[in-house]
Design a protein around this nucleic acid. Structure first.
Length: 574
RNA sequence: GCCCCCAUAGCUCAGAGGUCAGAGCAGCGGUCUUCUAAACCGUCGGUCGGGAGUUCGAAUCUCUCUGGGGGCACCA
């Protein structure tokens, strides 16, 4: 069952009113080259409001107040709008019909778990790539923002009618992985009591020491003469399991882990290089064409051989990028482009990448690469989130897997629980960076609004539990007369009915945090009502109680829907 | 130097060009005899960083200045 956001439905009615006013001569026709926009927004002084009269004053060559009045007079018959008032300088204030609002309680109950789904995607396929952390160590808190945001974006897309494929780009090629292999090799040899030095850029963390120790216990000295690739393989497997377990714990699963190495094995990387060359976008040189004298001198001093460059500057980049190093190894750029070609060739209508802002340039270059190869780079959207700054007691601490400065997501979840960390990371605009003070983590988790939201669900469940405990018929409210719902209940229903438009807005902005805020808003509307609007109370007549129980059933469905969309649990008891 | 993001209440943050700028926390004062108080009610708190522009209308769009964060590797 799919819903249409209320503003769209109201807009359609106003459009018909305008058309009727035009055919009766009360408003002039709109010139063919012009388009009439009809904005509808939730308002404080009414349920919804439209500023269409102000926006169209020039178009209709009339005063906004007159236009608004005319539109109001030509409203077609409909069950949705109950009352319309015009307010200076020309707002059309709209109240929905009480009876219609009340009926929506039954609509929500009938829709059930998938309530308020939209049909924007038309079941097209979309790939959402997120996390994609190098498998060099456990998932740290900084990375978890992308995980939470990415998963919420995927759930949002599903609610908007897309078929979502969740993918983790597994960066198991490249220099970092070699470094991991060599580091574990060194730790292993050290565990055997042999002298071995960690590489200069090696992984210094306690986690990697333990990996070496564990391996030594498992295989004894049998691996003494193996080269780094075996150690890399071993570490990669363990780290992969570790990351998967962490993600599972916070409720994230992937349809596919896409191995970077497969792009090499399949020849895709070479093909991409060839295709870029064929399109005239590569050249071999020591520095990029357009490099400053400073850069040229520096390159000469280093005695660098020629590398292969991607002429991205021709597509708007500030400079060209190396895609094959002078030693013959591709940089990350080339497999990245190959990967995105692969995504689009797999038939996804859209590709959405969730990245930290430190990967901004990378995402740009990938788009230039796709454009160079004749693909529509617009099919790729990037959700770029600012970074999470780890703090301890008010001072910032570093976060580097290589240096072993790591606060893992698991450690934080041990303290706060998955739901609290999810909400904390989700409830901020991706444009803002987040300060995460570990010393305040527990305190913050107690103040975390997620409990306030979950408690709304708990309270709904509590009423149903009482019903059972007091021996009521579970279908007690079967034929409730919902017209007995009062003003306060109706305004809460109205709040629930905002969900489709909230989903649409969050979808259009690719901004899952808006759902987090709206859900909190809904909880703020819920709790005060709950205090006053009782169901099983001696003061409440049975027929009113039944109507109210319908309302709380609907509320429970909507809270569960919203919590699930954010990847959180909807508990029956706190 | 170039690119991206940010600046809104004491703090953390929302804010879809529209009617008087909103929450939570903190502060102050209240509320548990009926579905668990992780709750409710009241109150205090603002030159929306500065300046110019576009518009009937700007926290929101443009430019500029200031102050922060991130990026601009033959790392990913």
């Amino acid at each position: 069952m799919s819903f249409t956001p209320l503003p769209q439905r109201i807009e359609a009615i106003l459009r018909r009113a305008i058309a009727q006013a035009q055919s009766s001569g009360a408003l002039p026709p709109v010139p063919d080259d012009q388009e009439l926009e009809i904005p509808i927004k939730p308002a404080k002084q009414s349920h919804y409001a439209s500023a269409v009269a102000m926006a169209s004053a020039r178009l209709f060559k009339a005063k906004p107040l007159d236009i608004a009045t005319t539109i109001g007079e030509h409203l077609p018959e409909n069950e949705l709008i109950g009352k319309v008032e015009v307010a200076p300088p020309g707002f059309i204030n709209i109240w929905l019909a009480e009876a219609w609002i009340q009926q929506q309680v039954e609509v929500i109950i009938a829709a059930g778990a998938d309530v308020f789904s939209l049909d924007i995607g038309g079941e097209q396929r979309v790939i959402v790539e997120f996390v994609s952390a190098n498998p060099t160590g456990p998932l740290h808190v900084g990375r978890s923002r992308g995980a939470v945001v990415g998963d919420a974006a995927a759930r949002l897309l599903e609610a908007c009618g897309w078929q979502v494929h969740r993918e983790y780009y597994f960066n198991n090629g490249g220099r970092q992985m070699e470094m991991l292999g060599r580091s574990i090799q060194a730790r292993y040899l050290q565990a055997l009591g042999e002298p071995a030095d960690l590489p200069d850029d090696g992984y210094k963390g306690e986690y990697h020491v333990e990996l070496g120790n564990t391996l030594a216990q498992e295989v004894g000295d049998a691996w003494r003469d193996k080269d780094w690739t075996a150690f890399k393989q071993y570490a990669e497997e363990i780290v992969f399991k570790n990351i998967s377990a962490t993600l599972a714990r916070i409720g994230i699963s992937f349809d596919q882990f896409f191995n970077e190495l497969d792009l090499y094995d399949s020849g895709a990387v070479k093909e991409t290089l060839k295709a870029l060359g064929k399109a005239g976008y590569t050249y071999d040189a020591v520095t990029w064409k357009g490099a400053s004298e400073e850069e040229i001198i520096k390159a000469k001093r280093q005695g660098t051989e020629a590398a292969t460059w991607f002429r991205s500057s021709q597509l708007g980049d500030s400079q060209d990028r190396v895609i094959v190093r002078s030693n013959g190894d591709p940089t990350y750029v080339l497999p990245d482009i190959a990967y995105h070609v692969n995504k689009l060739e797999r038939g996804f209508a859209r590709a959405i990448n969730v990245l930290g802002s430190d990967h901004f340039t990378e995402s740009q270059v990938v788009k230039y690469g796709l454009a160079a190869l004749g693909y529509d780079a617009e099919r790729v959207d990037v959700i770029l989130h600012q970074l999470v700054h780890l703090m301890r007691g008010g001072t910032r601490i570093g976060m580097s897997t290589r240096k072993g400065e790591i606060i893992t997501l698991d450690e934080v979840m041990d303290e706060t629980g998955p739901d609290a960390i999810r909400y904390f990371l989700l409830s901020r605009s991706t444009d803002n960076d987040i300060s995460f003070d570990l010393d305040l983590a527990v305190k913050q988790s107690n103040e975390n609004p997620v409990f306030y939201i979950q408690n709304a669900h708990v309270r709904c469940a509590g009423i149903l539990r009482q019903l059972d405990e007091r021996g009521y018929d579970p279908d007690w409210d079967r034929n409730a007369d919902i017209s007995l719902l009062g003003e306060e209940e109706r305004s809460f229903v109205l709040k629930m009915l905002e969900m489709p438009e909230q989903l649409q807005m969050a979808y259009e902005n690719l901004a899952p945090h808006q759902i987090a805020f709206w859900t909190l808003d809904l909880a703020r509307a819920f709790h005060p009502m709950y205090e006053r609007v009782r169901v099983l109370h001696s003061d409440v007549p049975d027929d009113v109680g039944k109507a109210r129980l319908r309302l709380y059933r609907a509320a429970q469905i909507v809270f569960r829907r919203a919590l699930t969309l954010m990847g959180m649990t909807a508990p029956d008891e706190m």
